[in-house]
């Protein structure tokens, strides 16, 4: 009984020659794993850099939009201020004209 078991175990655990190309496949898998790990190592810094670039781009765009809005508002104020000044100068002129007419 114990001999049978031993024989069965021997048969089951007998050394088997690896199939052709086994070592190459293992090495290929190891290299693939290393490449995957290398890619994984760069993923976080690359994501961070992309986020920073995206954030910077958004900031510049918002800043430019704000600057344009402020510039257009300043332009509007200049025109309005000059309009008002003109209007009041004209008021003075009309008064003088009125006086000369009476």
């Amino acid at each position: 009984m114990s001999d049978d078991l031993e024989n069965q175990l021997r048969a089951a655990l007998r050394p088997v020659e690896p199939s052709a190309g086994f070592a190459a496949r293992v090495m290929a898998r190891v290299e693939a794993e290393q490449r995957r790990q290398a890619r994984r190592r760069w993923r976080i810094p690359a994501s961070l850099a992309a986020s920073i670039l995206l954030g910077l781009g958004l900031y510049l765009r918002v800043h430019q939009q704000r600057e344009t809005a402020a510039g257009l508002e300043a332009r509007r104020q200049v025109i309005e201020a000059l309009h008002l000044t003109d209007e009041k100068l004209d008021l003075a002129y009309q008064t003088v004209k009125e006086a000369s007419g009476s």
Partner: peptide, 24 residues
């Protein structure tokens, strides 16, 4: 109407005034 245009605002406005437009 309350308008306050200091030198920096005037400089900014001048960048947005179109020299091809007669009024501007």
């Amino acid at each position: 109407v309350n308008i306050t245009l200091d030198p920096s605002m005037l400089a900014m406005a001048s960048r947005f005034l179109d020299s091809d437009d007669p009024q501007d």
